[in-house]
Amino acid sequence: MEVKSTNIDNVTVLTPVGRVDTVTAKAFEDALMAAVSTNKKIAICFSEVNYMSSAGLRVVLMLGKKITSLNGALVLIDMPDKIFAVFKMSGFDKILKICQSFEEAKEFF
């Protein structure tokens, strides 16, 4: 799967594209772990994700734990409703920072 990466104000913004499921979770995980090895301030933009299963949630949770252990910051931004629904059902809206936009996320970095 494609995961776009850009740097804004010293934050690495990752934008996965398409489906995040059992088939693509490993590539998603590799991209996230590669990013955190160079920067512990990360935003994941979900605007181009059209489907997410628990395999994807698992990877985001692992990254969240890792970034917390590094005293970094992880913010999830720009989530379509159906993707947010999956995060909410898993209770992840209570343990991870979720913002509407990068502008809104800035204060957490």
Binding site: S53, S54, L57, K65, M89
Partner: peptide
């Protein structure tokens, strides 16, 4: 909490 949450087991809950 984030620290305590096990990685996995979410699929069947969904």
């Amino acid at each position: 909490s984030l620290d305590e949450r096990p990685v996995g087991g979410l699929g069947i809950s969904l």
